[in-house]
Design a protein around this nucleic acid. Sequence first.
DNA 1: TTAGAAACGTAGCAAGTGCTACAGGAAGCC
DNA 2: GGCTTCCTGTAGCACTTGCTACGTTTCTAA
Lengths: 180, 180
Amino acid sequence: MSKRDDLVEAATDYALAHGLIGLSLRPLAAQLGTSDRMLIYHFGSKDELVSAVLEASNTRSMAYIDAMEPAGSLRQAVLDLWATYTEHEQVQRCQRMYVEAAALGLLGREPYASSIRASNTLWIETLSAYLQRSGVSAGRAEGVANLIDATFNGVFLDRPLDDEAESRQIIEDLAAALGG
Amino acid sequence: MSKRDDLVEAATDYALAHGLIGLSLRPLAAQLGTSDRMLIYHFGSKDELVSAVLEASNTRSMAYIDAMEPAGSLRQAVLDLWATYTEHEQVQRCQRMYVEAAALGLLGREPYASSIRASNTLWIETLSAYLQRSGVSAGRAEGVANLIDATFNGVFLDRPLDDEAESRQIIEDLAAALGG
DNA sequence: TTAGAAACGTAGCAAGTGCTACAGGAAGCC
DNA sequence: GGCTTCCTGTAGCACTTGCTACGTTTCTAA
């Protein structure tokens, strides 16, 4: 593994822990045992570092979905997905960072907008594939994946507000509405 | 109206146009025809200014919901709410700023976390009241309001990505799933 | 062995951040 | 007149930001 790849993984850990908004090179570099100077040397600019981190984070979280056992119904699939989101701290953090990146890209600011675009495409494909493995028809899977993704992200957005029970209730309402 | 109130409204306009993340006092003050010095004088700190702006933004967007005509069914209520979100640029911008504030508050950072907490409580009440006006039972309204709010926010989060048609499709799927 | 490239440390720049110190003008009250 | 209180302009502080100039070490290939 190249030095650059090592740095990406370590930087991703740091960003997942400390947040993407307000991320700055010097504290990051200090934690990584290097200097801002070297980060710029390896990545060319902060923007390219951020792009690499977002891609790495997305790859990590998709692996968790790909590893899931298929569910027996759409309703159960929604609940299982939520369980994956909440039970793995890693997935939660990746999702949180996605939300931060999306907020940063809301006005079209780069590299966030482009990174979000790329991540979202892959993410919907991943969700859709899981739904199809769980018996959802190919024609319906992508639409349902989009709805689930939007709702999950919306719940995550208000994460600091509500206790887990309230979030859980929203997801169950969605599962019931979808799965009949 | 006091000088401070004038400043809050003008600052809210500015923040809605330029975004909340990365908002800084000097450009804001320049647009308002004053100085960072005076903003600090009137508000005490940037954090208090931000709190006031978020409150003002929330008040504005709630007024649009309160002004809506009741819908004939839950399904139609969801579609009408989405129409209000998308047709009024003011509401869109307020929602966008809410998303930014929520992202900033994701790790508990103040004053964003507290502002989001306060805004969300009022917002759910507002949505819930509209749903009840539209015939949703009092017992069910708040839960549905939470689900709608989460999904709408999730769709807004990916705003730069998808064309309006795709967003619209997600909302229609939600409306169909909810309204039967 | 030696040339060249890759990797790295030190120091610094220009710009921007929230906020403050200090002074002065204006308005009202006795 | 004096005196206080609100308001405001000028200047600056201490700090952080991404990034760069410059020189040195380390490694590799001929």
